[in-house]
Design a protein around this nucleic acid. Sequence first.
DNA 1: ACACTAATGGAACACTGTTCTATAGAGGGC
DNA 2: GCCCTCTATAGAACAGTGTTCCATTAGTGT
Lengths: 202, 202
Amino acid sequence: MAMPRRMLRTPSQRIEPAVLGAVVYILNEDGPDGLTVRAIAKRAKVAPMTIYNHFNGKNGLLEIVWTDGFSTLQQALGIETGDPAHDLIASALAYRNFALEHRAHYTVMFIHHFDGFVPSIPATQLAAQTFQVLVNHIQRCQAVGLFEGYSATNAAQMMWSACHGYVSIELTSVNFSSDHEGTFRSLITGLLRGLGPSLSTP
Amino acid sequence: MAMPRRMLRTPSQRIEPAVLGAVVYILNEDGPDGLTVRAIAKRAKVAPMTIYNHFNGKNGLLEIVWTDGFSTLQQALGIETGDPAHDLIASALAYRNFALEHRAHYTVMFIHHFDGFVPSIPATQLAAQTFQVLVNHIQRCQAVGLFEGYSATNAAQMMWSACHGYVSIELTSVNFSSDHEGTFRSLITGLLRGLGPSLSTP
DNA sequence: ACACTAATGGAACACTGTTCTATAGAGGGC
DNA sequence: GCCCTCTATAGAACAGTGTTCCATTAGTGT
């Protein structure tokens, strides 16, 4: 009963999910520092070279995580009932939920800068499209009198700043607030009210 | 006229400013990726070993940048005239100005995670103190009826989230807004209004 | 069953932070 | 001015990183 002279080959179809699963697992468990090519290969039970044959090295993997993340986020933000203000708030809550439930993706998309990783032009466009979903929400709100006097882009930038700021602070665990969800809700509804219709007496 | 067998020694008093200056320069010019011990030493015209003798390696340098940054920021936020709401807005603007004028420091403090860098306990306490300055602003505001129904900590968390979110997006140059300062001002004043006194008709 | 594809292990490269070494220049006491 | 101590220096060395190249050989399609 001799040891095989080398590890058995991983069937081709299982390589991609195994590697991507390893990336997400390591990011969630050990953080960005632990995400090395050799560690990914080891966890995926795959040779390091496979990461260069199947993907485009470490940056290729990050690009997939980035793209998958923005696709998921874009869908999560596309809430459309009859009430634009409600939709905007729901989208903000969905944004936070996405970050909490897909820490690994959110880290790659927004938090951690990986040495030498620059998303491709299509990947960047996908991110811009995702932002556009937010702009569309604002425009629907403007149709019913909210965000008067602001450009939709600027208003969207403000909403996104608030969401991203709160969430990124929450994820890096320097949130001094009690009741993380409640405070986030207050932030969003407060901002919506403050940027809402003029407060002059009717 | 022979070349000296080795570089002349850098006088002790000039080492610290030269090295710290090099760190800030490289962070501003090449970003976090370019900040290597050898690059710092080269730019400071100093031997790499000096960084380990004088400071505590790369992490020691980062800790100094962190500490200096929070000291400066804490002072910049300590605005106190008679008008609490005005002071809060002025502090928010000062926060953004600090980030723009001290990109390198802001990067180390809030944006980039450096492999293996964990600020010491005193350094972390200094950061918490800085946050407390914001809480104090909120409390003064509450004394004149603003932020009713919110805990000061939670309200401060919301304000900081908005500031940090906007600024970090601006620094990583994915700001879609026109008029960066104006939009930031709108964000802050809008949030202040939205979290302000109840909007029920008088 | 056979041929082709591609996953494997291992060596190698340039880079990183870090430690250790012997050397010799700077600074202070006389 | 002289000498002695302190320490900044250059350089090698270590483990780790992303990445490339290699011969070997196990899967896979026909």
